[in-house]
Design a binder for these strands. Structure first.
Lengths: 202, 202
DNA sequence: ACCTGAACACCGTTCAAGT
DNA sequence: ACCTGAACACCGTTCAAGT
């Protein structure tokens, strides 16, 4: 069984396997992907240059599936939809965050998604000199709240006496409920401020 | 040279070595730390339970060195100082972010730092039921802006024609300058909103 | 063209041996 | 008590061998 009549692998299959493993919180390295696909690690190198390219493939598949298509909604509806979707994306794949954040974005699909957002903001009336800053703020929010959602149910576990933290922890909502409240507050803050900025500049 | 007259290692030495490597962007695993300290990997296990405990040690040393001590300043000055300091911390150690975020915080020094912040917010008049949410928002901001600062100079590199993104990228500030502007806008948004919330609730 | 198997340099961890 | 060396199961990657 040196060469199968039909190929067992492809870049898409490899990228999707890595993504499925990452989503399940499992290791998603070359060996793990090969095991998952019932194939030898060295087989992957017939389709892919190495782990770096696998990460690139995963990024492409990921952004495609979380992409927001602005469909005639108002600019603030689009921004909120992007915030929600990207927050979910980062929360579902927290282990990928450092890999995604540390690299220059060249993937055409990812560029197109950001181009959509930039276009919506310019059309809304934001000055061109501020677009990149606003987009970076939106990204920063989504990452921060995504990682917050992915964090453990009990973020703090004091072992000694505290002045305030222990008291406010007692009986407070934890887990997804607390994280959702945090996101609602944070996104309301961001959108209010952007609306005020737009009104002041117009 | 089986046993030296004075120990070569300690948890502090090991944690600091890991932190120094992480700050330099180098691998900071057991083997790398041992190499850096001129010792065999197995030697570390006389002082430390494994990689997990080393990460805990790194977290403790890290938060200690970036800790903000509220010294009689107003609550919003303290929040801004925490934002700045934590943003710098995450930006200086982006590879540590997933390790720090994914785990329940038990380290007494870290708990004490959050207790300080919680006390300042309660004293300022924020309702106790909102304290955790506000702290989580502050954390989310710091992480997002820290990773933004750590990201490459050119975040986007379009290879094909774009409607808007390419135009606003052209001649825009990049790197630390853009990241600093993003942070100034984001932190101003957050503080304005918190002040408004406080005024409305009082 | 595409999968395999052996090989290499790595990684984290365990444990008996030495002082 | 504390460092070493050998050993183990892992990891990513290369490459000749097979069809």
């Amino acid at each position: 069984m040196a060469r199968p009549s039909a190929p067992l692998l492809s870049p898409e299959i490899i990228g999707d396997a890595g993504l499925a493993l990452a989503r399940a919180g499992k290791p998603f390295g070359v060996n793990a992907i090969a095991r998952h696909l019932g194939v030898r690690p060295s087989s992957l190198y017939n389709h892919v240059d190495g782990m770096d390219e696998i990460v690139e493939l995963m990024r492409g598949r990921l952004v495609q599936s979380y992409r927001v298509h602005p469909g005639g909604g108002s600019w603030d509806e689009v921004v909120l939809a992007v915030l929600r979707s990207h927050r979910r994306m980062y929360a579902d794949h927290p282990l990928l965050v450092p890999l995604l954040v540390g690299k220059t974005i060249t993937h055409p699909g990812v560029i197109a998604a950001y181009d959509d957002l930039a276009t919506v903001l310019v059309d809304a009336g934001f000055p061109e000199s501020e677009i990149l800053t606003v987009i970076a703020v939106i990204d920063a929010f989504a990452i921060g709240f995504g990682l917050d959602l992915a964090s453990p149910d009990d973020v703090w576990q004091p072992s000694e006496e505290t002045r305030t933290l222990g008291r406010v922890l007692h009986g407070a909502a934890g887990g997804a409920e607390r994280a959702d409240r945090t996101f609602e507050l944070g996104s309301a803050i961001l959108l209010d401020s952007l609306r005020a900025r737009l009104a002041a500049g117009a």
